[in-house]
Nucleic acid binder design. Structure first.
Length: 489
RNA sequence: GCGGAGUUAGUUUAGCCCGGUAUGACGUCAGCUUCCCAAGCUGAAGGCCGCGGGUUCGAAUCCCGCACUCCGCACCA
């Protein structure tokens, strides 16, 4: 069984995640639900994100609409650029990208954003045929990856957002004014985005409806090297890979990365440093991670400089975060379309802020943490999910060694006294070893077992997930033991 | 979307070639055991065999279509 299969099996058996609408045959691919363990785990991951990025850096957090008006995506460029020109072979049904087919057959480069009729004209003029069967092509159409929705009885045009950040951009003027903003200003958001992927695949890794945690840093393009607090991360090590040459991954400090020109400025290096420190704390094996600088062709249409944070998993290198320097693309687009002013004062200077974004895929991050944390302990023949204690869905299992002689009642009492302050799981049934194994599988770092001695001296056995070591702890101290062991770093 | 493989209980799996409504394991639940690492014993629940149609007296099994999952290609601002 591959690591991927092992994670999927655990996810299904232990309620981390599973397919949406699975009782119906018309369920579509690319939609998954988080179960109880998954939600508890996700919430803790997001709390870590808030601590390490939003609060640490004094950013704002908003929660925007998932449905946004058509104008937003006209201004952002998504209506024109987030769509592929596709054409279909009339004989064998092969669907190809019109621009790719023309490029390959006739060596003519047509801009992706050209009109469909332009593609048809060239296909006709160059007598381009299906590369597979030689058949003729039907008319070129635009397949836009945004989900269109109709608002109200008239069905007014709107779209499910394909990235959460558009809310942040259009809210910027109000946020800057009402929240007494000053540059650089970070605004974050956790929420869902929607993309009509042609072929969703691999569970949480490629979804049509997915979670993003995005941070948009509004900055003065003339002051990208004036970063307050840079000293805090200047010695943080980044694992960098340049795309141009087949260079390996280099370990360089943030300070060194800027000096050597590997990272264009201190602002970008600062946030790569914060991000690196964040992921270190998620339990992902950072020796299998890298920040890869993207080449011209790989970058998104709005990005000037882009680094992807990628991690090696059993499915190959997986992109968890896109860090894009989007320059003035977004705000100038919204300014022009809306007529609203997006310039702000930075000291004595009036500037249209540029944007550096940290766009995190939450689902992919959660998957990667699970895969990197799941291990088989051959010595004791058990499956252990060695999550960081602060990310575990269950903090502590509360178990009765046996049910009789009042141990069940004592166990219930202890569970009741603790359950509002942490995620405690009560279990009376089955052999004690079996219950420990169950807790190991959901990643619970602690278990407290109530036995006959508890009735005499009010102590319990506390068992550690990773070492399986046991110690005797007073019931009165249980609270503080749990808090100390499961608190965020 | 193309090509390939697959889909039977929570998980895993037999049965399919050679039609007669389904097998085992693990897990779950209850009881006994009162026990500190998946112990043992007894019992139970759980399946419209992915969905729809066809052939047939009768379909998990044969035929057709569709969906989903996985792999490869293409795609992935």
């Amino acid at each position: 069984m591959t690591d991927y299969d092992a994670v999927v099996k655990l996810a299904l058996e232990r309620g981390f995640y599973f397919p949406s609408c699975e009782v119906y045959g018309d369920a579509q691919a690319g939609f998954w639900e988080y179960g109880p363990s998954g939600v508890s785990f996700k919430n803790k991951f997001l709390e870590l994100w808030r601590r390490e990025l939003i609060r640490r850096d004094g950013m704002m957090e908003i929660d925007g609409s998932q449905i946004m008006s058509g104008s937003v995506f006209e201004a952002s460029g998504h209506l024109a650029s987030f769509a592929d020109p596709i054409t279909r072979c009339k004989k064998c049904g092969l669907t190809v990208r019109a621009d790719k087919a023309i490029e390959e057959a006739a060596r003519i480069t047509v801009p992706e954003a050209a009109e469909p009729a332009e593609f048809d004209r060239i296909i006709d003029a160059e007598k381009i045929r299906c590369p597979k069967c030689g058949g003729g092509f039907a008319s070129t159409e635009r397949f836009n990856m945004m989900f269109k929705v109709g608002i109200g009885p008239e069905g007014r045009e709107a779209y499910l957002r394909p990235e959460t950040c558009q809310s942040i951009f259009v809210d910027f003027p109000r946020l800057f004014k009402s929240m007494r903003g000053r540059l650089p200003m970070g605004v974050g958001q956790i929420g869902k985005s929607f993309r009509n992927e042609i072929a969703p695949r691999q569970g949480l890794l490629r979804l049509r409806e997915f979670y993003q945690a995005e941070i948009e840093v509004f900055c003065n393009p003339a002051r990208l090297d004036l970063v307050e607090g840079f000293a805090a991360i200047s010695d943080t090590v980044l694992r960098l890979q340049m795309t141009t040459e087949d260079s390996g991954v280099m370990n360089v400090t943030c300070a060194r990365a800027v000096e050597s020109g590997l990272v264009p400025n201190r602002l970008v290096a600062y946030y790569l440093g914060l991000l690196s420190e964040f992921y270190e704390k998620t339990g992902i094996d950072m020796s299998r991670g890298r920040f890869r600088r993207l080449g011209q062709k790989e970058k998104a249409f709005y990005a000037e400089v882009a680094f992807d944070f990628e991690v090696e998993t059993s499915t190959g290198w997986l992109e968890l975060v896109a860090c894009n320097y989007r320059s003035g693309h977004d705000l100038s687009g919204h300014a022009a379309k809306s007529g609203e002013k997006f310039e702000v004062m930075d000291g004595d200077e009036k500037v249209l802020p540029h944007i550096f974004e940290i766009s995190m895929g939450i689902d992919r991050s959660l998957y990667t943490i699970l895969e990197h944390s799941l291990r088989h302990d051959g010595e004791h023949d058990r499956t252990v999910l060695s999550l960081k204690p602060y990310l575990a869905p269950v903090h502590i299992g509360i178990l009765s060694l046996v049910k009789k002689d009042g141990l069940r009642e004592k166990t219930d009492e202890i569970h009741n006294s603790i359950k509002r302050r942490c995620d405690a799981f009560l279990d009376h049934s089955g052999a004690i070893g079996r219950r420990y194994r169950r807790l190991d599988e959901v990643g619970a770092p602690l278990a407290a077992t109530i036995d006959h001695q508890t009735l005499e001296d009010n102590t319990v056995t506390v068992r550690m997930r990773d070492s399986m070591e046991q110690s005797r702890v007073g019931v009165a101290e249980l609270d503080s033991v749990v808090a100390a062991h499961t608190s965020y770093p």
